[in-house]
Simulated scan of single mutants.
Amino acid sequence: MRHAKAADALMQEMHGLSETAEVTLAGLAGGRPIGSNDGHKPTGVTGMLSDEATSNKPMLNRLDVLANEALTRWELPAGAHARLINLSENATYLVGAPCGFRSILRVHREGYHSRNAIACELEWLRALKSDGGVLTPDVIAGRDGELIQTCAVSGLAGERHTVMFAFIEGSEPDPDHDLARSFEELGEIAARTHLHSQTWPKPEGFERLVWDVDAVFGSTPTWGNWRDGPNVDGSLRPVLEKAEEVIRHRLHAFGKDPDRYGLIHADMRLANLLIDNGVTRLIDFDDCGFSWFLYDFAATISFIEDHPQVPRLKEAWVRGYRKVRALSAEEEAELDTFIMLRRMALLAWIGSHAEVPYARELSPHFAQGTAKLAQTYLSRFS
């Protein structure tokens, strides 16, 4: 990570902030936009699936075919066409028609979420909007009334689940403005989602990812083993091993009581907020799952955990959170443990996504930066 950048430039790069609503809506896929180039971000398709390299134009062409064939599953205006705007864990398309109609089509990565898991995500999305006080995107049902349409096309392995969202006008928080104000709002939104999570009666068979110690450090970690991260060598491993040991110990002691652990968004970055005329909507629930509520803060500073602004942003997030939901001094003191847990998960992610341009961009110094964070963390907690 390049520490010499100004904070606003860092936030713009790390969270994929853009000036257009079309590219902003790529946040539904949790990735970075296609074709954006502000002097920091690589140009071109970014954020690829592990089995679909960026150079695989035939695969992209087949995805385009699938997306446009899938449009027949919905009642859409004449001439509707899907255009790829983001490729990350999922492929996200802007759907447009000559009459001015717009929507967002999400084509899910094969094998990442089951159909039931996607349905559970959409059910929580609906419930948050209806009774949780959090504005979320509307989901457009297909001709058959189903929210999820499963499609296949020759030349593309397996079936793909697709979901269509209503187009949302708006833009992400401006990185040139005071980021503390945006983080305070993030804290308020996080607290509302956590209050809802605690009381919402989940449907039978509710299924989502789990983001706990085993998901990061277990035998089958979701994003891979941090030891396989780039440049994790013998000089860095001891401090990272010790950090893992302390994280495991502290989170075991912290516990998973229902006032601390439950269903969370798990990717509540600035890039996943859309603001229009003072109204803020939360998007991209693709990673939502079960974890500690405080993990949501760690996700807000993904990839910039070592930036000097982080303490101030943490204070702002906590201040906003406490406007809505209680947060004890003990819980606040443990935020650094969740930051370290997330950082080591991201180190694993970079190692398991070597074909992603952004991962390659971060890979030279990310392990070293993680080790420095671990040293600071251990100076407080070991």
Rank of each mutant, 00 (worst) to 15 (best):
A266K: 02
L327K: 03
R143V: 10
A82V: 07
R2Q: 10
G142T: 00
I304V: 14
D64P: 07
Q375G: 10
I168A: 12
I118S: 00
R250Q: 10
N61E: 14
E13S: 05
A166I: 10
R319T: 12
W74Q: 00
F293M: 00
C288I: 04
T54W: 08
R32W: 13
G111N: 12
N68I: 08
V95W: 04
G369Y: 12
A80V: 11
R126C: 13
E332G: 05
A299F: 03
I301H: 00
W349T: 01
V310S: 00
Y93T: 02
L270K: 08
R83C: 03
T370P: 06
R237H: 05
E361H: 08
M268S: 06
E146Y: 02
A26D: 07
T370M: 08
G79C: 07
G132E: 04
L63R: 05
E241T: 10
T222A: 14
L346Q: 08
N272E: 03
E244D: 13
L240W: 11
P58I: 13
T150V: 11
W124C: 14
W200S: 06
W200Y: 15
D296P: 09
R62E: 03
V213A: 14
H113A: 01
D51M: 07
G111A: 07
A298L: 03
A166P: 10
A26S: 15
H108Q: 05
N86G: 13
Q309G: 02
D176K: 13
Q149H: 03
L76K: 05
A326I: 06
G229N: 08
G234D: 04
L347W: 12
C288E: 06
N272P: 06
T222R: 14
W226R: 08
V239R: 08
Y93D: 00
S182H: 15
R250M: 10
V23M: 12
F293T: 00
G229Q: 11
